[in-house]
Nucleic acid binder design. Structure first.
Lengths: 341, 341
DNA sequence: CCAAATCTGATGTACGTAAATCAAAATTTG
DNA sequence: CAAATTTTGATTTACGTACATCAGATTTGG
């Protein structure tokens, strides 16, 4: 049987009330007594029964999710997953609120973060725009003792407690190797479609991609990055234009969102050419394109996993508990037409 | 606030004791009264607070994991993960026991399963050997109300509550496409190394693999399957032999365990040849081989996820609760040298 | 219609922890 | 050394559920 507060009291030779004062950092305990209790806790290996504690406290975890107001399938999916988590909130003792902020807008994000500093929720998850002022705002929250996790895109050099997202450098490198191997030594140009170089995940994907292409596939050259702002219309226009002008393109890497536009451009301009295409994010559109052969591979991050992981980590941090690292590592999913879920 | 038993009592116009009798299927409630209570439960959307219930019951979940006594890295890893789960047992209110049975031995498995029928644990997870007598034994347990999940390898046609493992047909298909695309239209033979055609996961992988090769990569032909019994020594001998005799081999698909032997054979016999190799299960050996270029891609199932998922599902089934399906789908991991964890 | 059987209500205890109150003991201060 | 202050102990209630007991009410069978 696992030890209880009573066992601590017996082991330390103090009363239950004192144990409670130590456990819950209440005042009125002499230093020596506190140490006696803490030693006893360590020796008998007491671990607070979180379920019982939450029951007694009537605790709920008020969490806030800050999401960018982007009109693309991936962000819609992320939104859906947060909503699904909200639907489970009574069972999970969470109270989740979502806040929408303009995409790629550090100032707006900072404003929201500062307001949350006053409100003091039990935890904050945010899709970070990678800027120094955002990092500073996050660091202030962390210093104030509010658990913060970044979601999907991380924040350079910040003190955030956790990042619930994939390793984007590895994602870019993987995309490069898939494209390179699928092209099997052919010579030509690769078009790269990104959302914005202002978000860290896109920058990192490009970095990893370029590194592997340069080092291991010298017959391939990367064209200047097309920035589609994760917007299908913009992406369509820019990609269609590139395909018309450059006849040397034999491969495409789409590392952002807004793939609807890309796919349309490919179907219009490249029916005759056999392009090899690797794209990010599994959506209804990319799934269809993978199945019909327009796209050859999709790299994906599971938004549901990311949201659930963020919640688990926020809870653990709020309770000062450890997390199972392997469980919280968000994996890069690689989908070919054969292993679609 | 979520509704409690008191709210049910008030809504149904009965006493707490009666609500309790209905909720816990205790006798002594007239049919009409029971219906009144059940309607109230439905109307106010009551969900039992499992944490409080377990606290009151002092409940722990006695689970049994049945694992094959195989000496390969994958099964060792699976064992480690079960042990890690055992280490968490006090926190998770589980009491997990593992039983080792000889691999590929339906009779031994049936014997153990029948004994467990007497013992009536709160749940059983097993790596199934796919045989009718095993299926019957499992079905008996299920009929007796004991939650059963298959782990890693499924059981054809059985009533098991859940399968915590990957879709092996999809895995085989994916392997075929990777191999086919990486070979880029070259003509030649593919060697296939399996453990045993007696386990369903291996059969299914082969089936998926063969289907895609036949349909989409006609320039490749599959050699008769080599059965290495998931044993490194056997695998080494058989593969080395095949590589010596067949000069037309340009690719290898290793769909079972025992890859240590395969890798050794490749390093001895194929230094001069540029074979394309796809293998299953990420272990220390396959990881090193992927990094040094001996293997081109590894398909993996995360044993930790499988074990944790099995436990979550068993708990849910024991409590008669629903599971989050998306969370319990075990994904096929594809590793290139760039996205290793 | 009455006794027996069945059903229902009222109540209390328990699980492990949180939180509060009040009394008692120990320590510090003047 | 006494008074003031701090520390500690003892006790109670609560969270939501499980489970047991006993009394009272209702239904059923003869």
């Amino acid at each position: 049987m696992r030890p209880t507060v009573h066992d601590i009291a017996a082991a330390a030779g103090v009363s239950l009330a004192t144990v409670d004062r130590v456990l819950n950092r209440r005042p009125g305990v002499r230093h020596v007594t506190r140490e006696k209790v803490e030693n006893a806790i360590r020796e008998i290996g007491y671990v607070r029964d979180v379920a019982a504690a939450n029951l007694a406290k009537g605790r709920t975890y008020p969490f806030v999710f800050i999401l960018p107001a982007s009109d693309n399938s991936f962000m819609h999916g992320l939104n859906d997953e947060v909503r699904a988590a909200i639907a489970r909130s009574s069972v999970e003792r969470t109270t989740i609120r979502t806040l929408e902020v303009p995409a790629f807008d550090p100032a707006a994000l900072v404003k929201v973060l500062n307001e949350l500093g006053e409100e003091r929720p039990a935890g904050i998850a945010l899709v970070a725009t990678d800027a120094p002022e955002v990092r500073d705002a996050v660091d202030r929250l962390v210093k104030d003792g509010i658990p913060v996790v970044t979601l999907v895109s991380d924040l350079t050099g910040s003190q955030r407690h956790h990042y619930a997202g994939v390793d984007n450098i590895a994602a870019g490198r993987t995309a490069a190797r898939l494209l390179g191997r699928f092209l099997g030594g052919a010579k030509g140009e690769i078009a790269v479609l990104a959302g914005s170089m202002l978000v860290r995940d896109h920058r990192e994907r490009l970095e990893g991609f370029a590194a592997v292409i340069a080092a291991e596939f010298p017959s391939l050259s990367i064209l200047p990055v097309i920035e589609g702002r994760d917007d299908p219309e913009t992406a369509h226009m820019l990609v269609a234009d590139a395909l018309s002008k450059k006849s040397g393109i034999i491969g495409v890497y789409s590392l952002g969102a807004g793939n609807r536009g890309l796919i349309r451009a490919l179907k219009e301009k490249a029916v005759d050419r056999s392009l090899t295409v690797v794209a990010h994010e599994l959506t209804a559109h990319t799934r269809a394109a993978l199945l019909d052969g327009t796209i050859d591979a999709i790299l994906n991050q599971d938004a549901g996993h990311e949201v659930r992981s963020a919640i688990r980590v926020l809870k653990a941090k709020a309770d000062g508990l450890a997390v199972i690292d392997a469980q919280e590592r968000i994996r890069l999913d690689i989908f070919l037409k054969d292993n679609l879920p």
